[in-house]
Nucleic acid binder design. Structure first.
Lengths: 126, 126
DNA sequence: AAACGATGTGATATTTTCTTACATGATTTA
DNA sequence: TAAATCATGTAAGAAAATATCACATCGTTT
């Protein structure tokens, strides 16, 4: 699935194409960028270049707007999406190594006798 | 699968993008068009607009060229591909209708008694 | 040697896109 | 309700991308 992701995030579309695909004006698209809702690439000549993901997001933004949600609301939505994505990433980032498992088990054995100092688990030791 | 086909044949890429995607010069791309190997769309301002299918074909053309095949050869290859595609299309064009089936069965019954005049099957009636 | 094939390059025109600034009508806010 | 803010339109002028056409080049065919 990595291949497809790459394709969808390739910045290959000029703003004129995106206008047609989304039925948004250049003004609108640039404004949404200004608001941080999309961040199109720039080519060597400073022209905005959009990916299919950008187009999808623009269509989403259109939907939110017609639903009556304003910029601030949409920003918040994407902000939260990003938070969740980052959390997920962090969760998956470093699966426990064998060493981690041994250390955890060792800690548990220590704690079996009684809760003396309780330094807590520390498996992400740099 | 119709959805994907449509996407791949949507003319959304300007020549600059296609140059980067294929590592071909504008001159080369225009020349291949001149030779009829690709037929990019034009936007309202007469700019060439390419589809993903066009990009695929250009990459194919590159390969053929590095294999030593010249324009004439590549043209012939695509000509034959088109022929085959058209034949296939024609084959699938008109699946037999119920009426055809009845007529065929009727013919077979006629032929049971013996092969008198043998006009052959005739289901593609006009 | 002449012709041809595939591509490079330059000139000039047109189109697209950029940024910046001001205008506008609809909401919010004070 | 007057003033501010929001989302978008519009205009100006500059820069970039692309168009066509013509001529150059270099290797391969004839």
């Amino acid at each position: 699935m990595k291949e497809k992701e790459l394709r969808r995030s390739l910045a290959v579309l000029p703003i004129g194409t995106v206008m047609k695909l989304t039925n948004l004006s250049a003004r609108q698209i640039r404004y949404y960028e200004e608001q941080g809702l999309i961040i199109p690439d720039r080519n060597a000549g400073n022209r905005r270049m959009f990916s299919l993901n950008d187009v999808d997001r623009l269509l989403e933004i259109k939907d939110y707007l017609t639903e009556g949600i304003n910029m601030a609301g949409i920003k918040e939505i994407y902000e939260q999406q990003k938070q969740r994505a980052e959390q997920k990433e962090a969760d998956l980032a470093r699966p426990l190594t064998d060493n981690d498992v041994r250390r955890i088990l060792h800690d548990e054995f220590l704690n079996l006798g009684g809760l003396e100092s309780k330094p807590g688990p520390h498996y992400p030791t740099h």
